[in-house]
Nucleic acid binder design. Structure first.
Lengths: 235, 235
DNA sequence: GATTTCACCGATAGTACTATCGGTGAAAAA
DNA sequence: TTTTTCACCGATAGTACTATCGGTGAAATC
């Protein structure tokens, strides 16, 4: 990453570190292309250019590699999150800042779409060793956005408005992810158009947040506000 | 399903059909609880109460079961989609209709959350035999919603407004799924509150759709509107 | 130059799962 | 009643993957 182009003669520890990184990269690629079912030590090692058994020189077991991979992803995601916050602060006008808040994660996702894909997949997969990381990341993003919104004046006073803020933040993240994937898949090629849609959606939500203290929900408060739990009998 | 409570003496073909359904149910439950990695013929058979080898009396192989399971899910999803359309038409006022359009899928998801979970998981998993079904389902939902919106007057004239409509429909679906999951996971217990948020988001998007013919996008049309493709060099 | 270290190799034991096979008893057909 | 059918059983061959082990040569150390 540092840009130092070291020529071929490497020390032993440098070479080892390089192989380790190759293994993580290979695992990421396979995870992205074939999913976790396709992730075997045989394929990882072959792709990294070493023998299958040599895999265990670098990692205790497969689980150990996934832990390292999760850390790697977390570092990268945290980095782009910090960058987003920093760059959004630099925007001149309020309107531009609002738009930038969407552009930056969109750019970040476009740069490394495999991170989002792997995260979305692991998010709902109980058999995935990455599920915990995926959930944590999603929560972190949501809270980060909610905090930003709170700082912008959409203050969370009572419990209800706090929950609304959370819902809006989660919704905005879902929208960003979905449209970013559409962009990556080539369906929505125009970034500015995508930003238009994101901004439009969020404006509606902000209007709700601003009106939070003015009146109660549209429904009478007396009735049951939960769906009954699954009756389990349907065919 | 039909309500006929047949007492214990079953014909041979009835008994076989029952076992087959038990196998599909067992597979669904395991898929939901443990993901595809945990889905083995051993577990499916044990859960259905038969020997592992008897699995092959009902299905040619595991793939065959997954095909049957996909059909089963597709039928159920299609059914709830039709129900949603029908019930939304019955709503008295426009405002109520708008709100109902969100309530019905939310109810449907709450009734069978495992369907959504399995779909979301398979959607981004290249190793999943259910990926195709999941993608088709997502597309069908999006187009269904887009058509409803078009019928409501958000007409798709030119190519650009058609694409916007598609983006909005996809966004609304993503929002519905995300908030529905939040509801299932117990974070957003109040259905009416969830509907408030969904309606607020969509109002913002509708405002955009209505203004589609009035002016161009906020950005100058000359510059590059796509992100460069991933440089692959980042660490 | 001699010795030690160790990243990598090939071979293989162990494990978990898929799918097949012959046998069995009760329902269905004769 | 006799015969046939077949849904289910236990046992097991075949397959794919994980993880270990002893060996090797070049880098590192002496």
């Amino acid at each position: 990453m540092g840009g130092t182009v070291t020529s071929t003669p490497l020390t032993r520890s440098e070479a080892k570190d390089l192989t380790r990184r190759k293994l993580i990269r290979a695992a990421m690629a396979i995870l992205d292309e074939e999913g976790e079912a396709g992730l075997t030590t045989v394929k990882i090692a072959r792709r990294a250019g070493i023998a299958q058994s040599s895999f265990y020189v670098h990692f205790k077991d497969k689980q150990d590699l996934l832990r390292a991979l999760a850390e790697h992803c977390a570092r990268q995601l945290l980095g782009s999150m910090r960058e987003a916050r920093r760059r959004a602060r630099e925007a001149p006008s309020d309107l531009e800042r609002h738009r930038e808040t969407f552009r930056i994660p969109l750019e970040a996702i476009s740069r490394h779409p495999e991170l989002l894909r792997i995260q979305l997949r692991a998010r709902h997969d109980p058999s995935s060793p990455l599920q915990e990381l995926a959930t944590e990341t999603a929560t972190a993003y949501r809270d980060h956005l909610a905090a930003d919104l709170a700082a912008l004046g959409y203050t969370a006073g009572d419990e209800r408005s706090r929950r609304r803020l959370e819902m809006v933040a989660e919704g905005i993240n879902a929208l960003t992810n979905t449209l970013a994937l559409g962009h990556i898949e080539g369906r929505y090629t125009d970034v500015e158009e995508t930003l238009d849609v994101l901004v439009a959606f969020s404006k509606g939500a902000f209007r709700l947040l601003r009106s939070q203290d003015e009146g109660p929900s549209r429904q009478a408060p007396g009735r049951d506000r939960r769906f009954p739990s699954s009756p389990q009998g349907a065919e």
